[in-house]
Design a protein around this nucleic acid. Structure first.
Lengths: 159, 159
DNA sequence: GATCAATAGTTGACTAATCAAGTATTGAAT
DNA sequence: ATTCAATACTTGATTAGTCAACTATTGATC
């Protein structure tokens, strides 16, 4: 009886009940390993993956800035604690906040020049890590993976 | 210019620098959505995904139990706070702990009968959720996804 | 049998995430 | 003009995660 690779990794003796379950666990496990790798890099810059994600979103938004909850929506991983995450980035001098003049409910956020500098130093290493981690897959396989995951996400929300 | 689905989800205006980067972000985003779905179910049982994962591992280990750090190794997502995670499960009456008689450094852990009952009630719903979330993919595509992720994990550790 | 590195886990201090309940502002409908 | 629901956060209380330093035990070497 051949054990799947994932089964071996988790030292499980029972096979998965279905390919669906194995796929789900596989996605989690892979995401965790990838996150750990990025974390190792960001750690030397005193950033968490969430903080890094926010800064990249703000860089993308440019001069106009973004309201708090819009940032939350654009984040890769959902984050109910966005206000305090931004608090910490403000404390670090990486984010600037100001109440929106036209809609005073909103608080607009921008990446500071310091943040942009930090991001610039991270760009190449991050691209390189991603490239290395995906280097086992050829271009076709990478596209396949992206498409399969697109499909999965298209239904998860509706289930 | 066609934006990728992921780009649309994240409301990004710039294309990804490479398929590798899109694949990496895609994995994170998908894992997050799937975790949210499982969370919604576990929440009504007052369990976190990590706690649920530990209980399943202990159920799999059966009568012989498992030492603390062995549990950590088998977890889907790495967890440095395993001791306190177990503390909470002990408080809830779901885990029983005892120092190992043959190697007094180790602490063996077991799922309690209450935990086994709880897990039994969760089995069907969890299988069903996984099935539903992966139902957009046919059996071949599910196997493809599993294999692609296997490949990715096989290198991530070595990068 | 004494020393010493390795293993297994715990603890303390700190940071971060979660949830529910709250405030301020806006826009729409009387 | 006034009420009322909706939006956009913010706050407090609680729980969980992280990191480094520590204790206890074991196994190996001299």
């Amino acid at each position: 009886m051949n054990k799947s690779k994932l089964q071996q990794e988790l030292k499980q003796n029972h096979p998965f009940d279905s390919a669906a379950t194995e796929a789900v666990i596989s996605i989690h496990r892979t995401a965790d390993r990838i996150r750990a790798r990025l974390n190792a890099l960001l750690r030397s810059f005193q950033l968490t993956t969430q903080q890094y994600n926010v800064l990249r979103i703000l860089r993308g938004a440019g001069e106009t800035g973004l309201p708090t909850l819009e940032i939350r929506q654009r984040m890769i991983e959902s984050n109910p604690g966005i206000t305090r995450l931004l608090d910490r980035l403000v404390t670090k001098g990486l984010v600037h906040r100001q109440r929106c003049p036209t809609d005073r409910r909103q608080v607009l956020c921008w990446a500071t020049p310091e943040a942009l500098e930090l991001l610039a130093r991270l760009d190449q290493p991050v691209v390189e890590i991603n490239r290395q981690m995906m280097a086992v897959l050829d271009e076709d396989q990478q596209q396949q993976l992206i498409q399969l995951l697109d499909l999965v996400r298209s239904t998860v929300g509706t289930v």
